[in-house]
Amino acid sequence: MEATVATTETQGKTWEGGNQPLRASYGKMMMWFFIVSDALTFSGFLAAYGFSRFKFVDAWPIADEVFTHFPFLHGVPAPMFYVAFMTFVLIFSSVTMVLAVDAGHKLQKSKVATYMFLTIIGGIIFVGSQAWEWGTFIKGEYGAVETKGGKILQFLDTDGNRVAISSFATDIPVPSDEAHVDSNGIWYMGGETATTYSYEEVTAGFLANDNLLIRTQYLDEHGHPTVLSREASIAKLKNDGKLVVEGANLRHNEYGHPLFADFFFFITGFHGFHVFSGIVINIIIFFNVVIGTYEKRKSYEMVEKVGLYWHFVDLVWVFVFTFFYLV
């Protein structure tokens, strides 16, 4: 195990090895190289997000209207608050991590262990929060109708408030509206997941309520989604409507463009996976600290290396936060 922190006897011999032109150990430098390549991977994802967003720049969902939930506050719109909380959790776990590294430099074993433990807790809170955020996003809130062209129609009342489809859809009894699942289907194909209401039920409900209007994905010159008149709404729904969308998955997205949901799942998922592996590595290092591996080595450099990774995960989140939730 000495190899990881080797200072060999070759100092002064430039071409004999053991020379550290960058004054960083092998392990630390490799961690930096890994971080650079991982940073490029994440920027590839975020740049692809930017590409798709610029492609549909006049019809992209507004993040403030998508992420409005806070745990235990049902029906209270709280845009940004939860993700701000998550950001603080991650920044704070970065602080405890860097405090662990600092204590490691001073060879204070119990302090390193305490700070590592706090870092792990912070990471777990963050991943849990992200799971909750995913759950809320997948479940959806108001529901929408998707047109034949794949665009999303959302429902408003005349005061401009969003209306959930469940509040106006009329119940039309259908002889067999059970989902077409693998076990009773022809061949091995399952059908589309059945939604609570069918397109016909939503349309009937919409026609019966005169105070309902349709909002399209397209943003007007002030950046607000366009609201159609009652006549135009009826025409749009009857002529173009095709299916009901509740929540979001990789193909349909009630909040707007499906690509938004795809990138959301992919980028926050990839980041969440990084946090998860960071937690696992942190736990391993934590136990190594506790059993005294680094105390024997007289070097806590492993803590420093895993710290670099952990800060990098925080760094990526700073960018995800900006480009997904703020900009």
Partner: peptide, 18 residues
């Protein structure tokens, strides 16, 4: 990003080349 890299990741203390 600058302060996370420079102070949390100790980039401030690394060699200029790195």
């Amino acid at each position: 990003a600058y302060y996370i890299t420079w102070d949390f990741m100790h980039m401030r203390d690394e060699a200029k080349g790195l």
